[in-house]
Design a protein around this nucleic acid. Structure first.
Lengths: 338, 338
DNA sequence: CTGAAAGCGCTAACAG
DNA sequence: CTGTTAGCGCTTTCAG
């Protein structure tokens, strides 16, 4: 396997200078005659020359590479479909524009030590955070001190930061709409099941629900559990049913939780939606394993990733973020579970 | 924000040469006195110097970056949990060793045009393929002609390729074990539901099942459907039930399919496992939304990714792959659905 | 133990 | 229209 040909090899073989080859490769329209261009292109093809990005980057100080830090306590940091879809949307957009996505899962607290932060050459950084809430600010600050533009997903903006853009969906408003729908049942008691891992949307959603469910009328209980294990969710619901009066509503922070709650209720002989209404969040494909069909709010993770890509590339071109914050509206998915 | 300090800035401020700074940065034990070392380290800290990987890479021809091409017809190329877990395992291992993972979702047929192949500077490439079967060879060959080591996931080895390692789980044997379990029912008729998108494991699994179910005794029907939509799966099962005799077994190519099949059967008043046995594949967490608990084979996607990382870094260190193929054994997950 | 110098592959002035 | 030249930031001989 012969080493990859360089621009010099091409230049030598075509009988021109490296500068000329460079102009051809970079499709600079002026300064090269058609004949020379054709000859150089033929040699490029013949030799299978591919420009080395390192040389170019070193020269231009552009890496054509965006870093994505996913801070999550789980080593299976991609486990959540929200993250997964976000990554796909971001990667696809960047790839389509000739940029690479450098993926990096990081344990909370390890951000500073990670080599993504310390050494990687990227043109910009994206951040997706879960884990303890108090680390948010630390992490955000840390990244924004690195000297490149930063896009932060699913967080409320921090006005003290410059060259940072916050992109999120309107989880609060989504939750509000769902709560309005639920109010039609005139509930007296509602149970909300939230993951034991911090997730930025959770606070927003709880806030949106609270804004609608008047505490005078509706008693709202919050229960935490390990959302990744359905036995844990079932156990949490059962424990609640044993301990408290029957709720009129169960709201899961995601559809998996809602589905497990339906199972738990059914196991106790309770019907959905006749005895208890159930709602979830996200509307990712497996939600349609729910029976009855689930009332939920459709998350826009893929689009968030995609828009993040657009915004960051625009920032790289124009030299500044057009907006400090970008919020995507959400839509209700009507289901028979309420 | 002042531009990032270079090795020259550090050298100047510490009153030494860049060569000395380089030795300190790279922890080369000999050739620098303790005093100089300490002084340089202080300046590095003071200036917040971080070495630029580009310069280093250009010099050393090492990028500390591995490319992963995920060839999939869906733009949401990360939709499948197998892929997702594989990526997480790979990324975690590489990250822990100071390597970055450059992620790239590619439409089938677009591999050659993708900039990952054409321009990205990586030390090695990994390939995860779905899509039309005949493209396998083309894609594999293409990558292996690029001049760096290649790791290919979930494919049978192609002995004509050099500097390539194939890593997969033993899907055939897993399917065989599952089939043996199913034979206890003494089935006469079995339905296997497979995705309409090619997925390397499918052929292996069908082969493993066929090796056990004697065609003289058991009639095995294969039905394709869009595995991502549970309505499509349900519709496929219903159409089969309308058209053919009741099967004794339904085997889904993954657990989602199996779960949807259970729903479809129940909708027709058939009990699982009394009337029809159902089995799936993968055992990813949401399988426990199945009721009754699902008989399945646990996939080892995360480990495949992780081992892929180990193997590729070992290759980079030693200069060659220790083995041409690495196969992970699989285990049955007993469930009450058979 | 330390520094000078060459060069990795490429681009961008500038001169011819 | 084309070539020469000077680096981008870093590592690595090789002399001192």
């Amino acid at each position: 396997m012969s080493p990859r040909p360089t621009i010099h090899a091409v230049a030598a073989r075509a009988g021109v200078s490296t500068a000329t080859v460079s102009k051809v490769v970079n499709r600079i329209p002026s300064g090269v005659s058609a004949a020379t261009r054709a000859r150089v292109e033929a040699v490029i093809k013949e030799l299978g020359y591919r420009p080395n990005r390192l040389g170019r980057s070193l020269r231009t100080l552009r890496n054509y590479r965006i870093g994505l830090a996913i801070v999550d306590p789980s080593p299976r940091f991609l486990a959540d479909p929200f993250t997964t879809n976000l990554v796909a949307g971001l990667a696809n957009h960047l790839n389509s524009r000739g940029f690479g996505l450098l993926l990096h899962g990081i344990q909370p607290g390890q951000l500073e030590a990670s080599f993504l932060v310390r050494e990687s050459e990227v043109d910009a950084l994206c951040l997706s955070l879960s884990g303890a809430e108090q680390q948010q600010q630390t992490a955000t600050r840390l990244l924004s001190n690195l000297g490149h533009p930063v896009v932060i997903f699913q967080q409320r903006p921090d006005p003290s930061l410059t060259d940072v853009c916050f992109i999120r969906q309107d989880d609060r408003e989504g939750a509000r709409m769902l709560a309005c729908e639920m109010m039609k049942r005139q509930p007296k008691r509602a149970l909300m099941i939230i993951p034991d891992v911090y997730w930025p949307a959770v606070g927003e959603r709880v806030g949106g629900i609270r804004a609608v469910l008047d505490p005078e009328e509706v008693k709202l209980d919050l229960v935490e559990c390990d959302e990744t294990r359905s036995e844990a969710i079932v156990a949490a619901v059962e424990a609640y049913l044993d301990r408290e009066e029957k709720p009129d509503l169960i709201i899961g922070q995601n559809d998996q939780i809602a589905i497990a709650a339906i199972h738990a209720l059914r196991g106790r002989g309770l019907r959905v939606p006749e005895d208890v209404g159930v709602a979830g969040f996200n509307a990712f494909p497996f939600m349609d394993f729910a029976d009855p069909s689930l009332a939920t709010v459709r998350s826009r993770a893929y689009e968030i990733g995609q828009i993040g890509g657009e915004i960051i590339l625009d920032r790289l071109e124009t030299g500044q973020f057009r907006e400090r914050e970008h919020v995507l509206p959400l839509q209700l998915v009507a289901g028979r579970s309420i």
